[in-house]
Design a protein around this nucleic acid. Structure first.
Lengths: 230, 230
DNA sequence: TGTGTGAATACTGTATACAATTTTGACTTG
DNA sequence: CAAGTCAAAATTGTATACAGTATTCACACA
């Protein structure tokens, strides 16, 4: 093997390696976001450790990360429980999210390159194709990919990071708005309008369309929160 | 002791109690933000544990939280090092920060109560008084308190949380813009203008003043980043 | 002098052990 | 039967032990 290849090989293996704490972190995180672990439920270290076949150490370290992310609530000498999400809390998340999407649009208007516009168009075509296949998860991912491209076009990596973090907090509801299929086709044309506005550097138009675009999703999330509460 | 008093006493002691991991977390966090631990510097568990007089466990758990916060960079099987902040990175932070301040203004314009306006005015008077005393840290805190009130007036707790997190990432530079004293008096009048705009629900005016208000601070941060790089 | 090799060392990753605190539940007592 | 009490069990918080991997440095050899 040549040096370059060896290096590449090692790097690949490095990427495969994940400390147990991160495996546990991802597992618990998904379980919370998907609602498998219910708000208020206690996370007991030994129980989790046994269930996952590891010792308490990686479990504890994973909980520390969940703690900082706000997904679990720590009570001293009592341990962690799944943080409960109030309706108000989710409204706040939606509001911040729209603000950040607007900021992304504003910056993208200034900075987007012709290549990136082409990419956006391609992503929307891909979104349209996925729609016709009906796989809800694939649709959601294609939609997310489209939006992700706008964030990137803002040229602000920190913004990408913050916005992804915020969106993850509504993960548990993300599939719902895609499920009621009647409005789906409209999403495609809204995407087109957004791309058009970006192309013309027309910020106000872009914001207006984006607001409408997000509104449905917000409505669905709101409905679902109330449904869960019952 | 009466029951109520006992309860209160215990609660107080509860508040005093902080797990070692949190003590370590706060200590390391401050050290990184203040620049005592330099970017790129390795954080070795045994060394830190000895220095702080604890075992590796709380140190490791603290590092997990620093990792999620992005303050340290984890390299598998090599450990943690202090994340380095590039100029680009800090520019991004400043940009997101201004976007969030604007969002806060927008929401505050809609929701601020007369009481909160009074509070803002009081905070600015307090800021002015602190200015004359010349204690840099006290001045910075008074200024931060003023801005914090605006965030709160947005009525969006998530926004408060996100904006504080973003601002913490420029902590290391936060004192600098206060230090060159010549522009200080202007800050007071800018604060007044912002309060006035909020009172009149004049969002555009508020944003305009806020932009100017933040500009100096941004310039100073930029200068300082470049100074550090040399 | 430069370079490869391997043992020694240092460090992280994980598991386990021990200490301190909280919770539980049975038992007592009014 | 309710309320209080205390010991046992469960659970978290912290320390230590052990295993595996990376790093370093001395030494051999070209």
């Amino acid at each position: 093997m040549q040096d370059a290849k060896i290096e590449e090989y090692l790097k690949l293996n490095m990427n495969d390696y994940l400390p147990l704490r991160d495996v546990v972190f991802n597992t618990l995180r998904q379980a919370i976001l998907k609602g498998e672990l219910e708000p208020g439920e206690r996370l007991m270290e030994v129980t989790l450790a046994n269930k996952l076949g590891v010792s308490r150490t990686p479990v504890r370290e994973a909980i520390r990360k969940l703690e900082l992310e706000g997904l679990v609530l720590m009570i001293p000498r009592r341990g962690a429980e799944v943080a409960s999400i109030s309706e108000k809390n989710m409204m706040d998340v939606l509001e911040v999210r729209e603000g950040l999407e607007n900021l992304a649009l504003e910056l993208a208007c200034q900075r987007i390159t012709p290549d990136q516009i082409i990419e956006l168009k391609r992503a929307n075509v891909n979104f349209e194709n996925t729609l016709s296949q009906g796989d809800v998860i694939a649709i959601a991912e294609a939609d997310e990919h489209f939006h992700e491209l706008i964030y990137k076009a803002s040229g602000n990596e920190k913004l990408v990071q913050v916005i992804n973090n915020i969106k993850e907090q509504m993960y548990r509801y993300r599939l719902e708005y895609i499920k009621d299929a009647k409005g789906r086709q409209r999403l495609v044309s809204e995407h087109k309008e957004i791309v058009g506005s970006l192309e013309r550097k027309d910020l106000e138009s872009a914001k207006r369309v984006m607001h409408v675009h997000l509104e449905n999703q917000e409505e669905t999330v709101k409905k679902n929160i109330q449904a869960v509460k019952k």
